[in-house]
Amino acid sequence: MIGIIDYSLGNTGNLVNALKKLGYESVITKDKNVLSSCEAIILPGVGHFGYAMNIINTSGLKDIIVELSKYKQLIGICLGMQLLFEHSEEGNAHGLGILKGSIARIDTDLTIPHLGWNTLTSNYQSLNGKDVYFIHSYKVSASEYTIAETDYNSNIPAIVKKENITGIQFHPEKSGETGLFILKNALDGSF
């Protein structure tokens, strides 16, 4: 069972369908006991960093997520990836602090948000050259955890990994077979 953290700011419908295609059952919940019993946990996210952290803090989810991150596979997707870090310019807000680093607005002369398909660059042959679907205006500043990146006239960490924690900036659930492959590897801890 895969636990999808419910804080009302995630693309959960498409995520549930993607997990089903991969053969996983899933549950959308904020219940600590249910999440503790899951084999992996996903923190989805669409929207504003400061607003999301306000919900997470006031609902008591912050302590639950931080605790579970110590021993569960935890995957943050899009805004969920950004929330794993210490701070964001978006709302001048503190994040979960599970990973070291900060979030900044994408510095580019191209259109913001960064919307559409981009190619990954990675030392991992299974990721290098793969096209995935992005929609975001903020990015992780340079990170020691980056295992794949993309270019949008600005270097953008696309996948970060530290032990049992994986962050995915793009939407794997909207990135076809490549996205499903990446999501499965994140859930299995295979990167």
Results as ranks from 00 to 15, higher is better:
115 L>D: 01
152 Y>Q: 09
97 G>P: 01
158 A>Y: 03
119 T>N: 09
98 I>W: 00
136 H>E: 02
126 S>L: 10
58 T>Q: 14
109 D>G: 14
78 C>D: 04
187 L>H: 06
25 E>S: 13
35 L>I: 05
115 L>Y: 09
140 V>A: 10
141 S>G: 05
177 E>Y: 10
136 H>L: 02
174 K>V: 12
154 S>Y: 10
3 G>E: 08
6 D>T: 11
166 T>G: 06
59 S>C: 14
151 D>S: 14
52 A>G: 00
72 K>G: 11
104 A>Y: 08
187 L>N: 10
11 N>W: 00
117 W>Y: 11
183 L>I: 14
158 A>C: 09
124 Y>V: 08
14 N>C: 14
74 L>A: 06
61 L>C: 11
140 V>S: 06
25 E>Q: 12
73 Q>W: 06
12 T>Q: 09
157 P>D: 05
104 A>S: 10
77 I>C: 03
37 S>L: 09
158 A>N: 06
137 S>T: 06
33 N>S: 10
13 G>P: 01
164 N>W: 03
14 N>A: 15
72 K>S: 12
27 V>N: 08
7 Y>M: 11
80 G>Q: 00
12 T>F: 07
65 I>N: 00
63 D>R: 13
89 E>D: 13
175 S>Q: 07
37 S>H: 07
109 D>T: 15
101 G>W: 02
157 P>R: 03
9 L>S: 03
119 T>Q: 12
2 I>P: 07
81 M>L: 12
113 P>L: 01
77 I>P: 01
142 A>G: 05
105 R>D: 01
87 H>R: 14
96 L>H: 05
25 E>F: 07
136 H>S: 01
60 G>F: 14
151 D>K: 14
66 V>R: 05
32 K>N: 06
94 H>E: 13
76 G>E: 01
75 I>V: 15
89 E>M: 10
126 S>N: 07
131 D>P: 01
144 E>T: 13
186 A>E: 04
71 Y>H: 13
5 I>D: 01
94 H>F: 12
143 S>Y: 05
22 L>V: 09
180 L>A: 07
151 D>P: 02
191 F>Q: 01
168 I>Q: 01
42 I>G: 04
3 G>I: 02
45 G>H: 03
30 K>F: 07
85 F>E: 00
157 P>S: 10
27 V>C: 05
21 K>T: 15
